[in-house]
Amino acid sequence: MDVSFSLWLFAVAAATSALGGMLGMASGIFIVPVLATFGHIEIHRAIGASIVSVIACSCGGAAPFLKNRLTNIRLAVVLEVATTAGALTGVLLAGIIPVPYLFFLFAVILFVSAQQMFAKRRDLGLAETRTESCGWADALKLHSRYPDRALERDVDYQVQRLPVGMALMYGAGLVSALLGIGSGVLKIPAMDTGMRLPIKVSSATSNFMIGVTAAASGAAYFARGVIVPSVAAPVAIGSFAGAVLGSHVVIRASSQKLRLFFVAVLVLLGVEMLLSSLGVHVF
């Protein structure tokens, strides 16, 4: 085993995960481009390593959300049918899709993430508006309530447009499996904009589902032999350590500056991935 390479993998994963955690963002989106570009690791192996770290961060970070009663487990179970079906489709396509297409898809997701981070998520305040009721969500008793700290009371919310949510979740699961990312960047908007859920519930429930979605593709990649322990083990441990660290560190730097820094990093990685998809390798 190359100890210095393992330490490099660990450090890269820990740093991206700690920084990403400060802004409530999973690190998977950084790990694959960095491993592929700077580590010269074959992209399917990078994706396999990343998906393991996604599981570690989702499971390791789930407890506080559950204890604050923000996670809607019932809704998660229903939406997981769509995310895992998407992941299964991704597993079927992963070996077939040409590598330049993967780089291109990655560039698109990086630009979408940059745009979302730039726009800064806000609560739409639709929590208690009872507009259209959804037959399926009623029948499965998916509506719930969560304790809102700012309002200092429980807020009831309704799950709306479940079919739209299911369709978007299928896409999120597909992207997650193809790129080795949690794709919270797709899941959270699917819930807060698509299904009109409070942002805190969307974040917590997205985190909860990410682990299962990643396990569906991770288990397949593990069986397939593309999760190489010498790469995946240091990356997984680094991400988890970084996530634990990130959640305990109070942001000293201005959060606005950090946000803009991340937007710049995402755009740069996106451009680099776009060039890679065209066969131009800068590094």
Binding site: H44, E80, G95, V99, A219, A220, F222, R224, V226
Partner: peptide, 30 residues
């Protein structure tokens, strides 16, 4: 809802089966 959870498990098992089946020709394999 239990049916939904069972379906999730079934999909994961199917995914593993696909992984095992496609082992030989997968790019990036060790």
């Amino acid at each position: 809802l239990a049916l939904a959870a069972a379906l999730v498990l079934l999909i994961i098992v199917a995914s593993i089966a696909v992984g095992v089946h496609a082992g030989g020709e997968a790019p990036g394999r060790e």
